[in-house]
Amino acid sequence: MSTTVLAFALRRTGATLLLLLALSLLVFGLLYLAPGDIARNLLGTRNVTPEALAQVRALHHLDEPFLQQYWRWLSRAAAGDFGTSIRTGGPIGPTMLDRTGVTAATAGLAFLLSVLSGVPAGIASAMRRGRWPDRFLVGLSVVGVSAPGFAVGLLALYVFALGLGWFPLYGTGTGFLDGLWHLVLPAAALALGLGAFVVKLTRAAVIRELDQDYVTFARGRGLSERTVLRVVLRNAAIPIVTSLGLMVAYLFGGTVLIEVTFALPGLGSLMEESVLFKDIPVVQALTLVVAAVVSAAALLVDLSYLLIDPRVRARTARR
Score class of each variant (00 low, 15 high):
I86T: 13
V289C: 10
T287Q: 01
V289D: 02
G149K: 06
A298P: 13
T49Y: 09
L42W: 10
D98Y: 15
V256M: 00
A78D: 08
A39T: 04
S274L: 02
V115I: 09
T261H: 01
L19F: 03
L155F: 00
R313V: 06
A297F: 09
T106I: 13
A147Q: 14
L116M: 07
L264M: 02
L20A: 04
A151P: 08
G149V: 15
L307V: 12
G179K: 02
D279R: 10
I280C: 03
M1S: 10
W71H: 05
V293I: 15
G93R: 15
A191S: 15
V119S: 01
F262P: 02
R128F: 03
R234A: 07
V152C: 00
L194P: 15
V48F: 08
P310K: 07
Y170N: 12
A317R: 09
S304H: 03
A297K: 04
V184G: 11
S114W: 12
L244F: 05
F136N: 08
R11E: 14
P35K: 12
V184F: 05
D211F: 14
V115G: 02
L267T: 11
R313Y: 04
A187I: 15
L190F: 04
G93K: 10
A107F: 07
R311L: 13
I308D: 02
E225M: 09
V56M: 08
A77C: 11
G108L: 10
G101I: 09
A52C: 08
F252C: 08
S117M: 14
V289G: 06
P310F: 05
A22W: 00
A297E: 05
G108A: 09
G101E: 10
V48H: 06
W71P: 06
I207P: 12
A298M: 09
N47F: 08
K278V: 11
V283P: 03
L113T: 04
D37G: 15
V138K: 07
A237L: 10
S85A: 11
T255M: 11
V232K: 11
L116G: 05
A196R: 01
L53H: 02
R208A: 15
L67C: 11
R221M: 07
G14M: 13
G90C: 10
P310N: 12
V312S: 08
